[in-house]
């Protein structure tokens, strides 16, 4: 089961999180929260696409649903914000079951595009809902009260523990029999089926877990902004970031998204510091992903790990 150093890693994350929340300034904390939540989303997409072989172009829908589930529930009730946050992944994972059962009738590219369509539809519906308040946006006011202080401090601790905990949980999972089935699924879906694995059910489980994970990470991220619009929560940028990070870092490897997020955010911050404006880093990122796909189709991590092993 869980190994001592994995447990130590989670404990260390908690310690560093608490320490970091006290030491780091607000801007750095905000950046760290973004990095960590983006990593969780990318790892989720990697789990579904890289391991499960189900490429989704619509997982931003779960980010948006997660955010609105948190904002609407927290604003309308007196439940503690962090309790609502803890419930969001589970609620969205459950809600994803019927969606998955319908969407899995579509195969491969049809599934990918179908998910995108679902995300667009849900975004349009969200616009029309009076309580979402459309482009006017929604402010996070748990129980009708404004948040005091900096939520980044708590968000940072949660996000760091969640990110490290996710890595540990996935490592533990991949050692179980369901994990073995997942690894087999990544390598050869037909052969996994022929070995007796219920591939459809495994796909559904991965779909729901990754939906819940994206929802939780989205909800966590928007606690730091305290404000959300459908345009923002359901934006295509989320899924693009998840994909680019995974593809560049290493599809179907646990370390890939770590590397990918580091490259994406490093590039963005570096270019911004160098005076390039706005979204120009996406151009470089796009070129980089094309280059990586040509040179090392499974991403940078497997290639780097190979060099280390040889050297």
């Amino acid at each position: 089961m869980i190994r001592p150093f994995e447990l130590a890693a989670v404990a260390l994350a908690l310690g560093l999180g608490i320490l970091g929340a006290r030491m780091l300034d607000a801007g750095l904390l905000f950046l760290a929260c973004e990095v960590l939540t983006l990593f969780i989303m990318a790892q989720m997409w990697n789990l579904l696409a890289g391991y499960g072989g189900q490429v989704s172009l619509g997982h931003q829908v779960f980010v948006g649903i997660g955010v609105y589930a948190l904002f609407l529930t927290a604003n309308a009730t007196t439940l503690p914000l962090w309790l609502v946050l803890a419930g969001v992944p589970f609620a969205v994972a459950l809600a994803a079951i019927p969606l998955g059962m319908v969407m899995f009738h579509l195969k491969a590219a049809y599934f990918a595009v179908g998910m995108w369509v679902v995300a667009e539809i849900v975004q349009q519906i969200a616009y029309k809902m009076p309580f979402v308040r459309g482009t006017a946006g929604l402010v996070l006011r748990p129980g009708g009260q404004s948040i005091q202080g900096y939520p980044e401090q708590i968000v940072f601790v949660i996000a760091l523990v969640a990110a490290v905990g996710l890595m540990v949980a996935l490592r533990v999972f991949l050692r179980t029999r369901a994990g073995l089935a997942t690894l087999a699924l990544r390598d050869n879906e037909g052969a996994a089926r022929a070995a007796g694995v219920n591939v459809q059910r495994l796909h559904l489980i991965l779909f729901c877990v990754t939906a819940g994970g994206c929802a939780g990470a989205g909800a966590l991220y928007y606690i730091t902004t305290l404000y959300v619009t459908p345009n923002d929560a359901f934006q295509l940028n989320w899924i693009v970031a998840m994909m680019v990070v995974t593809v560049i870092g290493g599809t179907g490897t646990l370390a890939g998204p770590v590397l990918g997020v580091a490259i994406l955010i490093g590039l963005r911050e570096g270019m911004t510091a160098a005076g390039f404006s706005g979204d120009q880093y996406w151009i470089v990122m796009g070129l980089l992903s094309v280059a990586v796909l040509l040179v090392s189709p499974r991403g940078l991590w497997p290639t780097l790990a190979g060099i280390f092993r040889k050297g």
Partner: peptide, 13 residues
Amino acid sequence: TFASLSVLDSVRL
């Protein structure tokens, strides 16, 4: 074959 699995794991599945 499961390209990245060991022979043992391939048969264990």
